[in-house]
Design a protein around this nucleic acid. Structure first.
Lengths: 206, 206, 206, 206
DNA sequence: CATGAATGAGGCTTCATTCAT
DNA sequence: GATGAATGAAGCCTCATTCAT
């Protein structure tokens, strides 16, 4: 039991060391030796816990997804008030938590790239597919809630808005990654104002 | 004159061959030999036109950016009607043109990854920063136009909506890349309906 | 301690294997793979001890210089008798020790060539410059000794004779390298007889 | 006839261009393209006159030997006076003519290296063997002349002294190549004084 | 369990040489 | 004859992975 815990600890130690290096160097430029050094262990030891560099990378991915999802769930569970208010609060919570670890955002790009071309692309693609689906569902549930209570218009397609919103959050962070002068939090708030207005306002006859 | 044209042609030939291979294999798994074979030339010939694999990759990036921007500009210049209509048309045009080359979307992910970790990250980052900036400006100009004509509400922050919209397009395609069952065009249209409603409707007092 | 010794041993193993191959094939025609095979190790192992082929080559050079200088110093320290006798004994000792490794003489030519044109020319040139200077000093000290004891004439310029003598030894071996029928030991002894006669005889008034 | 002359001219043009590049870069680092550029012709043209890089290099060697031998012969034919005087004059003439082209001395080292390891080593070795033999013979003829006229002692072994002298000249230039502060002309004169003293003085009984 | 020295497959790149114009 | 674009064999070096200690 204790043994298992120690083993778990070392595994985490390696994963977090690897995450740091992968984030700065990228998958291909990262050397197993660097990860070992960063973790303060021997090169060979990594192979006691992971079967290959790709396996380790995928484990980092799983760890990362779990970590960010956990944070997102915490944010969401804490939401209260009207659907609009919860939507705004979610926007703030998500962007804030991501901005706190913007230096880790390069990891996301590595994961995207891996989903496009690595040998494990299928595993990555599936995880992304499911991750996005889950996330869209959380958001669309919130939207449907707003529709059911009459706060949002019944014409609104919750799924579509959820998908676009999830995408917008991702891509605002991407733009922030590229452009240090870009402020995604303020941008997202101003955008949310318009979007929420669109959700609550009766569509104009055309 | 003819000589220069021939040289230009061969350069393009190599770039397009490289784009295909990079898109399917990713940067690192792509062999220079494969590119040469794909282009129907000798391995050494590539180095007559590009100084290294990285240089070729960046050239593919430049070619890709130019190509997609050219298409986008054509779409935009053809727009007419009200701001809302132009926005919807732009949405359709962009998504359609990207969906036509969804198999090339993995290239975008390779470029993102390169911007995060390759030796050329600065070059990539800068190009992305400028690319996004340009694109946001085109969209925000359209939005400001709508505001000035009174079609859109004056409270709307054109910059922020443009940034989120540009991001949403990107990220809807990303979701489509991960999920074959996801229909980004329909999704985007339904989302646009809500967004445009938010742009034109007088904000509710809260 | 044992570890360091093992590491040192393997380094030497590689250097001596490399020396053999460089001597027969020359720098450029020598393959790292050949050296590894000759040393009975894997190709990659060489790079655990040397950063590049050039680095290994320079290390062979340093090893060679050290080895030959050590032999020369042993020869010199064992000398006794008059200055003339010591000079003759030095002549014999040096030529004999070099003739024992005439098959390694091609290495010297590779070193000369490297000092003329390789990327490391500065390092080689400096080492040669210092090596020749040291050697000239040893011989000129011996000559000055003879002058001070009155055995050699005071008009003798010890530095100049030392330089020419050192050069003659080198170049006699060079001629022996080119011409198997050339006997540098006998030649040098007969030459030394004349030179020593010139050192001890009172200059003729002209 | 005119055609043949033009062909000869271009051949020489290439050889001299090649000599310059080989002297500065060394054989291995020299690119055929550099030689062509230096000669102001196209790369392919070199192959109209020489069958390969090695062939061109050997032709440079032949040209160089011919050139330096011609100079030496001119020097020698101009000599007059006693054997001692002719020896001193030869020393001066040879060193002066070589010092004038010390920047070409690296070529000699390339030739030595080629004789040790190139594919053409046999051709080079033979040429060097014969070159040294010829040169030794010229000098030993001069010495024998001095012996026959009674100016030099009969005990002198002309062959041996010639070999050592020829070697000393070579090696003094070598030392000058390595050490800019080394003055081979003065050194050689002071050495010659001692050597000539040894040649003319009656050997001491020992 | 942990280690890191040893390995060798693999790939980018160079450059002498060819040959169509 | 002259050219230089095209070629591909060849070789240095990297680095994930193994395994004896």
């Amino acid at each position: 039991m204790e043994d298992k815990a120690r083993k778990q600890n070392k595994r985490s130690l390696i994963i977090e060391a690897a995450a740091r290096i992968f984030a700065t160097r990228g998958f291909n430029s990262t050397l197993m030796a660097e990860i070992a050094a960063q973790a303060g262990i021997g090169k060979g030891t990594i192979y006691e816990y992971f079967s290959s560099k790709e396996d380790l990378f995928f484990s980092v991915f799983e760890w990362f997804v779990e970590k960010t999802q956990a944070e997102a769930k915490v944010s969401i569970s804490a939401l209260g008030g009207s659907a609009s208010e919860r939507l705004k609060a979610l926007n703030d919570a998500l962007l804030r938590s991501w901005l706190d670890m913007l230096d880790m955002y390069s990891l996301v790009m590595e994961f995207w790239s891996a989903s496009a071309s690595s040998k494990m692309r299928q595993r990555f693609k599936q995880a992304f597919r499911e991750g996005y689906r889950d996330f869209r569902q959380i958001v669309s549930a919130l939207l449907r809630d707003g529709i059911e209570t009459g706060e949002f218009q019944p014409e609104v397609d919750a799924e579509s808005v959820a998908a676009a919103l999830v995408g917008a959050w991702d891509a605002l962070l991407l733009q922030a990654w590229f452009d240090e002068g870009f402020d995604p939090l303020t941008t997202s708030r101003r955008f949310m104002a318009v979007l929420i207005n669109g959700l609550v306002s009766k569509p104009q006859a055309i």
